[in-house]
């Protein structure tokens, strides 16, 4: 009885470490394939389109609404202390430091990560990847690494767009609808948001999240059981694991960057 329990525990631990190891092998091959991707920018371009451009709409819309909600809620709280002029600061800092990298990464996992996993999983299920290997084409260089690099490039751009659109949304609600002074809104924001400490750290965060999101998506696709059920499970796992990893990593990065 106890032995059975111990065995199942050991089995789980071993499979966990196996997955961890396979994940890192995947990452290693992705990283060493990056130079050959740079030699063929057309492949990269195609992937930036499907990972970045097609995610743009959802980023624009959610960035605008998140900024508008921040403007409304921030105004209600700040007006209680007669400090509604700090609205610009509150909206910009929230967006640049936390909201833009995290929400972009979550949306990215849902929109682009799941699509990547499904695509790669199906390629594996229909043996396209092994077919390439038979023809002496390295699927790492031809298929996986362009997608990886495209995600790492697209994430910071998407996060910057999210933050910029969000600030615009906050401006629209705060200044346009609620009547915060326009000059105070921008000048307080500029006085309190630091380019290196806040904006660059936010961009670094989004780069880290980009690496994590595409890495998990590619790994899950490659590791999927080659059946339709396996692919659908892998897709779910991508979204769940990426979201958890992003939220957990965000706490660690915030503690490192803004903990003083």
């Amino acid at each position: 009885m106890i032995l059975d329990w111990l065995q199942s525990l050991g089995q789980r631990a071993l499979s966990f470490f196996q997955r961890l190891g396979r994940g890192h092998i995947t990452l290693y091959y992705l990283l060493i394939s990056i130079p050959s991707v740079l030699m063929r920018p057309r492949l990269l371009l195609q992937q930036v389109y499907s990972v970045g451009v097609l995610t743009l709409l959802i980023i624009l819309v959610s960035g605008l609404f998140v900024g508008m909600v921040l403007g409304l809620q921030g105004y209600n709280t700040l007006a209680r202390f007669g400090a509604e002029q700090a609205l610009g600061t509150a909206v910009a800092l929230t967006l640049v430091r936390e909201m833009a990298p995290v929400v972009t990464a979550l949306l990215f996992a849902g929109r682009a990560g799941s699509a990547l996993t499904a695509e790669i999983g199906l390629m594996k299920a229909t043996e396209q990847l092994s077919g390439m290997e038979m023809m002496a084409v390295d699927p790492n260089k031809r298929v996986l690494a362009p997608r990886f690099l495209a995600g790492v490039i697209a994430m910071p751009l998407l996060a910057a767009i999210f933050a910029a659109v969000g600030v615009m949304g906050g401006y629209f609600v705060g200044v346009g609808l609620l009547g915060v002074d326009e000059g105070a809104f921008w000048s307080q924001m500029q006085a309190n948001v630091d380019l290196r400490d806040d904006v660059f750290n936010g961009i670094i965060k989004s780069m880290v999240f980009g690496v994590v999101a595409v890495w998990i998506a590619i790994y899950e696709g490659q590791d999927a059981t080659p059946t339709s059920e396996g692919v659908s499970r892998a897709t779910t796992r991508t979204v769940v694991h990426t979201s958890l990893a992003v939220l957990g990593l965000n706490f660690i990065l915030t503690a490192l960057m803004f903990g003083e």
């Binding site: 743009l56 910009a92 640049v96 910071p156 751009l157 998407l158 910057a160 767009i161 933050a163 910029a164 659109v165 600030v167 921008w186 924001m189 500029q190 006085a191 309190n192 948001v193 630091d194 380019l195 806040d198 904006v199 961009i203």
Partner: peptide, 16 residues
């Protein structure tokens, strides 16, 4: 668009 957003963040939002 990404570059423009970064530029906006640098010039309009931060203290640069």
């Amino acid at each position: 668009a990404g570059m423009a957003a970064l530029f906006l963040l640098a010039m309009q939002v931060s203290n640069l």
